[in-house]
Design a protein around this nucleic acid. Structure first.
Length: 351
DNA sequence: TTCCGGGTAT
DNA sequence: ATACCCGGAA
């Protein structure tokens, strides 16, 4: 049955940038980018990344700022920080050679069980299984797994299944074939069972429950926050601040501000936040824009305002990592998350 | 407009 | 168990 899968993959594998010249560094970069992110989004980022950081030593020598800038827009920025840090570890501890042993790989920052299995099998030809969202879905259907796949029991079962169907000597192609099948045929919605090489052997399909596999838990409702941000102008420059390196949007630049408290109006909220973070009083002027965005576990509506300093005091980096006064034209040089990039664009377009 | 998908670290 | 982002489908 798995022969049918490999034959199918031979004929249907997409020509993706990281499949052309798959050295371990490239496989690694592609796998980190592909965590939580679709192929179509990753492709252009991957190609730019390889121009900027063509090999592991180049990445290790780069600054965190350059790395975050290259990652801007991809989300989950700890992936970029960990990739950068791991490259430095590989230089120090492994003489610049990415290890092939899955356990050694998994000790590197940002590499978990999935990525370790993917690199070991794809880049080094080791006979090890791996399990990502695509493979999880394919196997849940192919073995009609009724356990919720994210439960510890479900996870254990799926890893066992992944190991049990591994063809000796072809784990790399096999793992990629399962992922490709999940991405292009055995999709979460409207699966293409009619063109699936495994359809005849698929119990979920035979039972007509393919759309109900994998079984997943319901999401909790996301809280919604109203937040404010200040574009503080002085002498033709605007101020940006850098977020702490850990946590949400870690190390990225933004327009300072924060969450509105119950009973507080937007202007008071912004004045308070700026005083707390930067130790200065501001005057809040016109609205620059209103932006909506969803993060992993909350949504925000952000109100951005043009602002000026209320007196001669200079802002100090109290609750922020760093602050800078920059020309609107230079804003593109600083890594930012989605919302702040939109604010910066609004600002640049208005000048 | 809401909903959904997707690995690692702690 | 929970934090972490964004794009695309419904």
């Amino acid at each position: 049955m798995m022969d049918a899968l490999l034959t199918w993959y031979d004929q249907h594998s997409r020509d993706l940038p990281w499949r052309r010249n798959p050295d371990p560094y490239r496989v690694w970069v592609s796998e980190i980018m592909l965590q939580q992110t679709r192929v179509e989004i990753v492709s252009p980022y991957y190609q730019r990344w390889l121009e900027l950081f063509p090999d592991l030593p180049t990445l290790a020598r780069a600054s965190l700022e350059e790395v975050l800038k290259a990652w801007e827009g991809l989300g989950y920025y700890s992936r970029a920080r960990n990739l950068h840090r791991a490259a430095q570890v590989v230089m120090d501890r492994y003489d610049g050679e990415l290890p092939s042993d899955p356990r050694a790989l998994q000790r590197l920052p940002g590499i978990g069980r999935y990525t370790a299995g993917a690199i070991a099998s794809i880049a080094y030809g080791l006979d090890v299984p791996t399990l990502d969202g695509n493979i999880r879905r394919v196997l849940a259907r192919l073995f009609n797994v009724v356990e919720p796949v994210r439960s510890s029991q479900g996870e254990r079962l799926l890893w066992e299944l992944a190991a049990s169907i591994l063809p000796a000597g072809q784990a790399g192609a096999h793992n990629q074939a399962l992922m490709e099948l999940g991405a292009t045929v055995c999709t979460a919605r409207n699966p293409g069972c009619g063109r699936c090489p495994l359809a005849a052997a698929c119990p979920a399909r035979l039972l007509g429950v393919q759309e109900q596999r994998p079984v997943s838990q319901a999401r909790r409702a996301l809280p919604h926050y109203t937040v404010t941000a200040a574009v503080i102008h002085r002498d033709g420059l605007v101020m940006i601040t850098q977020r702490p390196v850990e946590g949400l949007l870690g190390g990225l630049w933004e327009f300072p501000g924060g969450k509105q408290r119950p009973g507080e109006d937007l202007v008071d909220c912004l004045k308070r936040e700026i005083y707390e973070e930067l130790g200065v009083d501001i005057q809040v002027q016109d609205v620059l824009g209103v932006y909506r965005h969803a993060y992993t576990h909350f949504r925000v509506t952000l109100h951005a305002f043009h602002c000026t300093l209320a007196n001669g005091d200079s802002p100090r980096a109290i609750q922020v990592n760093d602050l800078k006064w920059v020309e609107a034209d230079e804003l593109g040089n600083f890594p930012m998350g989605k919302i702040d990039r939109q604010i910066a664009k609004t600002l640049q377009d208005s000048i």
